[in-house]
Design a protein around this nucleic acid. Structure first.
Lengths: 195, 195
DNA sequence: GTCTATACTAAGATAGAC
DNA sequence: GTCTATCTTAGTATAGAC
């Protein structure tokens, strides 16, 4: 018979994280109970509190780590001088990164309102940093007349909104390959910001 | 002293709807309690059940009515033969309609997963009908070579995703007028789908 | 139609045994 | 580190008085 007690600190922590990630993404933070999370991990609810001070921290850490991973991955990319190259890279990076982490992305967009004010401020700052990196590409391209957008801030938000739409419908193994999806979106983004 | 009892059937119903709308939009369906809604209306929680069989119906009716209003308003518009005219009209209509009803729109996008399966199916069908009206504009324009998109279905979703981004940042009285916003987005959409 | 009161269930979190 | 047990609060929904 499987033991029901004992020490598993090194595996339980990650499993709690995984379970919370999946459940929050599927049902929403507010609709998920600590007991559900515990059930998925295979421990009792009380045991979760050896790993997190409370439910809010579980959400916050998922979101913060996701945003930090996103920024770190983006900032490691090759730097292009040509804004068109940089934009193409951004589009490809954004689509691939987000499709690899659908649950994290979903949570990052849907659960902002369930963060405490302090936590919200911190996540917003990270999100803002990412948006700014796209806006600076558009601004440089605008100054060199390679791009033609009425408003770089709005164009930034419009491009990101458009790209985020991918995760609502893309399924790997579907009609289009990842390369094709990337190509289709790059085509639309390029045309939208060009004269 | 204000009376705390009595008949108010004609005003309480709409007020419950308003309160639920605002609270669901702000905090999310799962995070809002019937007591909170009742508190906002100024009645006791039990009184809500004279107007709705349960909390789920409150959500479902808000979403269904919103989608029906959207479709009815769109279908009343002038029919254009030229796909470019039709697309321009769609962009303007979508932005204006959505900015006039930010709470309904927010709920319609965020709370799909909190619908029962039957209710979800019904809302999805309505949403699909709306998307199809845009796709048919793009398809006609594609056939006449006025538009050039790799895939009309993806282009449809991309355009709607881009336009929906407006409601996350637009505030009336802000830097740009509604006409200017409409113009900026029309400019991007037109270019994105044109050769 | 609304109130008070409550049945019933479940939530987040903690205490102490093992 | 996990379990069982429990505290405390709050949820949806209903019953019956007014």
């Amino acid at each position: 018979m499987a033991r029901t007690q004992g020490s598993h600190s090194d595996i339980t922590g990650p499993r709690i994280r995984e379970a919370a990630l999946g459940l929050f993404a599927r049902h929403g933070y507010a609709a998920v109970s600590m007991r559900q999370i515990a059930g998925e991990v295979g421990v009792q609810a009380g045991a979760l509190y050896n790993y997190t001070p409370d439910k809010q921290s579980l959400l916050f850490r998922l979101m913060r780590d996701h945003m930090q991973d996103l920024l770190a991955a983006y900032e490691e990319l090759e730097q292009f001088d040509d804004p068109q190259d940089a934009l193409r890279q951004f589009v490809g990076f954004h689509i691939r990164f987000h499709l690899q982490r659908p649950d994290e992305v979903f949570i990052a967009y849907m659960e902002l309102r369930n963060l405490t004010p302090e936590n919200f401020t911190e996540i917003e700052a990270l999100r803002r940093r990412y948006e700014d990196s796209l806006e600076s590409i558009l601004r440089i391209g605008q100054q060199s007349d390679q791009f033609s957008v009425t408003d770089t801030k709005i164009a930034t938000l419009a491009v990101i909104a458009m790209l985020n739409g991918v995760i609502t419908w893309y399924r790997s193994g579907g009609r289009l390959s990842l390369d094709e999806v990337e190509q289709v979106y790059w085509d639309m983004v390029r045309k939208a910001v060009t004269a």
